[in-house]
């Protein structure tokens, strides 16, 4: 009987530890998402990137921390000054994109993230990279939309690519604007705080729409 008690106790302790680990994971993720959602500056994004990096190394079977670590670094690269600094941050993002792809192959969100990574690379040095990367980014967003035609992030980012291209070539932005418009109700329908699945991106579509109205 005594033996059983110890066994039970061990079972319960390990269970609570696990639950605690689970709780710690939740808390750590929430903390990371908070710092990512805070005022958008390099320091906050680096902090959230670091936080997700720590979570990713400890919960290596979860794709969410990989996703947000990459996203933080990509967003940080957009704020950084100079090609070299931008590239350094994107170099940090890359392994997390790769790892997320490995954990959940053909996940529309992760594919859209990869497209966003290409887009950020392009944005760092558009003159020399435009030719090779614009097609690649567009193609990747296209694939994300094929995997999930209702993915508003893939749509908004694709719309942004199309908008930029249309502006450059002086052609109609109607297609891009239509796509951004279509994404907004999908963004609004997303339930926030229910899981760690991404819900960001409405600002991308809204910003585009502001340009479209002109």
């Amino acid at each position: 009987m005594k033996k059983l008690t110890i066994l039970l106790a061990l079972f319960i302790t390990s269970f609570t530890l696990n639950a605690q680990n689970q709780e710690a994971y939740m808390n750590a993720m929430v903390k990371g998402l908070q710092s990512m959602g805070a005022e958008r500056n390099l320091e906050n994004l680096q902090a959230s990137a670091g936080q997700f990096e720590r979570i990713a190394s400890n919960a290596s079977d979860q794709w969410h921390p990989q996703y947000y670590a990459a996203l933080s670094y990509i967003n940080a690269s957009l704020l950084a000054e100079g090609v070299k600094a931008k590239d350094q941050l994107l170099d940090k993002a890359k392994p997390f994109v790769e790892k997320a792809k490995e954990l959940v192959p053909n996940n529309s969100e992760v594919v859209a993230l990869e497209g966003f990574y290409f887009m950020a690379q392009l944005a760092a040095d558009p003159n020399t990279r435009g030719q090779s990367l614009s097609g690649l980014a567009t193609q990747t967003f296209g694939y994300a939309m094929k995997l999930n035609p209702e993915n508003p992030r893939a749509m908004a980012l694709m719309a942004q690519m199309q908008y930029g291209t249309a502006q450059f070539f002086g052609s109609s932005t109607a297609g891009a604007c239509g796509l951004a418009q279509k994404s907004i109700p999908l963004f609004n329908a997303e339930e926030k705080g229910k899981s760690f699945d991404p819900t960001w991106g409405i600002e991308v579509a809204e910003q585009l729409m502001a340009g479209c109205g002109k």
Partner: peptide
């Protein structure tokens, strides 16, 4: 060194160094 990743191995606890 800013932005260094400081953490306790095997946990989620840590921070980034500031500027």
């Amino acid at each position: 060194i800013p932005f260094a990743n400081v953490y306790i191995k095997g946990s989620f606890d840590g921070a980034n160094s500031k500027n």
